[in-house]
Amino acid sequence: MITTNNPITVCLWFDGKAKEAATFYCSVFKNAKITTDTPMVVTFELNGRKFMGLNGGPMFTFNEAVSLVVECETQEEIDYYWNKLSEGGQESRCGWLKDRYGLSWQIIPSIIGQLMRDPAKGERVMQAILKMNKLDIATLQEA
């Protein structure tokens, strides 16, 4: 029998730094914890979402085809996550960054969908986003 509630866990492949990465992510997110720690696999939770860090070796690396999205209510939250996650990593455009492990993140305001709903305003918001690295809520609302 096939069930419909099978848990889905994101597995992140690291080159021997799964525990280090999990510890870092748990330091960034307030509602976070490491739940299992073995030499090969570290499982952890960030804001209720389960992740598995696999010490898989150097064969595979992260790229922008997969990113984790953090929706933020305030500019203070955007600033916090942007600063913490980009430290030792690389800032990019349009609210994207890579952390020190090469994992891509999108740090976005939770109101972005609402701002993009109206076609005319949505185009102005998109043009503003294209000029930014870290997103600025006030600038997007004024667009």
Rank of each mutant, 00 (worst) to 15 (best):
G57T: 02
G57P: 01
G57S: 04
P58Q: 04
F60C: 00
F60M: 05
F60E: 00
F60R: 01
T61G: 03
T61A: 05
T61Y: 01
F62T: 06
F62I: 03
F62V: 04
N63F: 02
N63P: 02
E64I: 04
E64K: 13
E64D: 12
E64H: 10
E64V: 03
A65Q: 10
A65K: 08
V66F: 15
V66I: 14
S67P: 13
L68S: 09
L68K: 06
L68D: 12
L68R: 07
V69R: 10
V69M: 15
V69G: 03
V69H: 14
V70M: 12
V70I: 15
V70H: 03
E71Q: 08
E71K: 00
E71I: 00
E71Y: 03
E71V: 01
C72S: 06
C72H: 08
E73I: 03
T74E: 02
T74R: 05
Q75H: 10
Q75E: 07
E76W: 00
E76F: 00
E77R: 10
E77A: 10
E77C: 07
I78L: 11
I78Y: 11
I78K: 04
D79T: 07
D79N: 15
Y80F: 15
Y81G: 13
W82C: 14
W82Y: 13
N83F: 11
N83K: 11
N83R: 10
K84W: 07
K84C: 13
K84M: 14
L85N: 02
L85M: 08
S86C: 11
S86V: 15
S86K: 10
S86W: 14
E87Q: 15
E87Y: 09
G88S: 11
G88K: 15
G88N: 09
G88C: 08
G89M: 07
Q90Y: 12
E91G: 06
E91F: 04
E91L: 11
E91S: 09
S92Y: 12
S92M: 15
S92T: 07
S92N: 13
S92R: 01
R93V: 09
R93Y: 15
C94D: 11
C94Y: 07
C94M: 10
G95T: 07
G95R: 09
W96V: 09
W96F: 15
W96A: 10
W96G: 09
W96P: 08
L97M: 11
K98I: 04
K98P: 02
K98S: 14
D99K: 07
D99L: 08
R100I: 12
R100A: 13
R100E: 14
R100H: 14
R100C: 13
R100F: 13
Y101W: 14
Y101C: 09
G102E: 06
L103A: 09
S104K: 06
S104F: 11
W105D: 03
W105M: 01
W105C: 01
W105Y: 12
W105R: 01
Q106A: 03
Q106S: 04
I107E: 00
I108Q: 02
I108S: 00
I108G: 00
P109Y: 03
S110D: 12
S110N: 10
S110V: 08
I111W: 04
I112L: 12
I112Q: 04
I112E: 06
I112M: 11
G113C: 11
Q114M: 12
Q114P: 00
Q114E: 14
Q114R: 10
L115S: 03
L115V: 02
L115K: 03
M116T: 00
M116R: 02
M116V: 00
